[in-house]
Each structure stands twice: as C-alpha cells, then as structure tokens.
C-alpha cells in the first residue's frame, strides 16, 4: 500500500502537467503551422512544415505592432500612476490605525467584488462627456483606478513588514522625516514596489473588458482587442498568424510571472480575509 503512494502521486502530477501544459504546447505548435494545415482535418503536434512567416505576417498585417505599442504605453503609465498614488496611501494605511484603516481595508475588499458591468455603462457616459472615450489616456486612468486597490493592499503589506523600530531609530539619530522615508523605508520597500509594479503591468496588459468598450478606433486598440478582432466571423481566419500573435502577446506576462514565481509563498489573499 505504502509503496503505491509515490507512483500514484507522480501519475497525478503528470496528469496536472499535461492538463496545464499541453494547451500551451499546442498554441506554440499552431503558431508555426500553415493555414492549409490548420484548415484541414489532419492533426499533428509537430507542424508539417515550419512557417516562421506566421510571426512576421502577424506583425505586418494586422496592426499588431501598433496595438502592442498601445498596450505597453497604457500598462507602463498606469503602473507608474498606481505606484505613485498607492505608495503614500499604503504607508498611511499600514502605519496609522483607526477609521481610515478600516474604511480603506473594507474598500479594498469590496473592490474585489465590483460588478464591472454595472460600472462600465456610466463610466462610458462619464468618459464620453470629458472626451476620454476612444482615448488611451482614458483607458490608462481606468486601468490605474481598477488596479489601485490591490496594489495598495500589496504595498501596505510590505510596509507593515518593515519594523517601525527602524524608523524610530532613524528619527533618534536626528534624521528628518523625509530622510527617514527616503533612506530607510524606501530601499527596504523596493522589492515590494517591483512586485506591485509587475502585477499592475500584467493586469493592464491582459485587460480586455474596459478596452473593448472604451476604445473604438482600430488605431487605439490594445493587443487583446486586436487579437479578438483577428478571430473574425464568417470570413477566412488566418489561424497561423493568430496563434503567432497570441504567443507574442502572452510572453510579457509569462516572463514576469516566472520571475516572481519564487516569491509566491505567503498567503496574502488568505491573510486579507483572515485579518
């Protein structure tokens, strides 16, 4: 009985690896296939002939480069905004007790269950009134706003982890408040800021719904929207370039997450609800 446990565990692990990994493998394989092969009934994991052209075609034909540039700009600017705005607030939430903290935490939790569908209708009307629909500026603001709660929550966790004694010691040495923050708190917070920034970047890079409703000119589309439009209706779908574009679109997120993989040990989320 005992002898069978390990093999059974490995069998289960293998099943998980196939379930999680095979779709990715298939997407990569499809990104090298010709349209004739993808539009046939033959099924091969290894493409019959490797079509690297899918990648160049994806980049040339469908405005993918422009959308990728739009996505990068929106993600970078919204990330910068989020960090700038969240950092002071996170510090305040972590260091000061009282009503503010309760309200802040409560709002962060509520934001997790926000019904975006109810918000998007008036948001569309409001942004239209101030001329920010079909605008990357508008989308950037929206992304920043909706990433803010979680970024705030992450950051205040990192602030809390810095012992206040360090700050107090700095203050006793005669350092001014700004100096304490700049020279003691900020360096210690750096890893947390990087992690929060990455989370914020990936959230914006992946975001679909707001972009779908708020952006209207193909010139302004972000990458997810362009990929969706790529799928097409009744007409001919360039499946190979579509797969190639999808692979390219997934790379930044996967790189960031692999980078952060090691940090995924604590249970911030569970902590959020427990606390």
């Amino acid at each position: 009985m005992r002898v069978l446990v390990k093999p059974a565990q490995y069998l289960a692990l293998a099943a998980y690896i196939v379930f999680l990994g095979f779709p990715l493998l298939w997407l990569v394989s499809a990104s090298f296939k010709s349209s004739a092969e993808l539009n046939s009934l033959t099924v091969n994991l290894i493409p019959q002939d490797w079509r690297w052209e899918n990648f160049s075609e994806a980049l040339e034909r469908q405005g993918l480069v422009r959308s990728a540039a739009n996505s990068i700009v929106v993600a970078l600017v919204s990330t910068a905004l989020v960090i700038l705005i969240a950092l002071p607030a996170a510090y305040a939430l972590a260091r000061f007790r009282g009503l503010l903290r309760t309200v802040g935490t409560g709002w962060i939790l509520v934001s997790q269950v926000f019904p975006v569908i109810l918000i998007i209708l008036p948001l569309f009307l409001i942004l239209r009134t101030i001329g920010l629909t079909d605008s990357l500026v508008g989308l950037t603001l929206v992304h920043a706003t909706y990433t803010l709660p979680f970024a705030l929550w992450m950051l205040q966790g990192y602030v809390t982890a810095i012992p206040t004694e360090l700050e107090e010691a700095g203050a006793m040495d005669g350092a001014g408040r700004t100096r304490v923050l700049r020279e003691i708190v900020f360096p210690l917070l750096m890893p947390g800021i990087v992690a929060t920034a990455m989370f914020s970047f990936v959230s914006s890079w992946n975001e679909f719904f707001f972009a779908l409703v708020l952006l209207q000119s193909p010139d302004n589309y972000t990458l997810p929207i362009t990929l969706k439009m790529f799928i097409g209706g009744e007409g001919k779908v360039a499946l190979g370039p579509l797969a190639a574009g999808s692979v390219l679109a997934a790379i930044p997120s996967i790189v960031f997450f692999s980078f952060m993989q090691k940090k995924l040990t604590g249970g911030l989320l569970s902590g959020a609800v427990k606390g």
Binding site: F124, T133, D134, Q216, S217, P218, M229, G232, G233, E234
Partner: peptide, 23 residues
C-alpha cells in the same frame, strides 16, 4: 483605410457612434 473586421462590428459601431469616434 482603417481596417476592421466583421466580427463584433455591430456593437463596435454603436460605441463608435455614441463615443463620437466613428470614421
């Protein structure tokens, strides 16, 4: 020329016209 696709174009035109961003 602004290329767009047939897929989902009806919804898109509604937001384009309402957002004042129609071609």
């Amino acid at each position: 020329i602004v290329p767009a696709g047939w897929d989902g174009i009806y919804d898109k035109l509604i937001t384009q016209f309402n957002g004042g961003a129609a071609p």
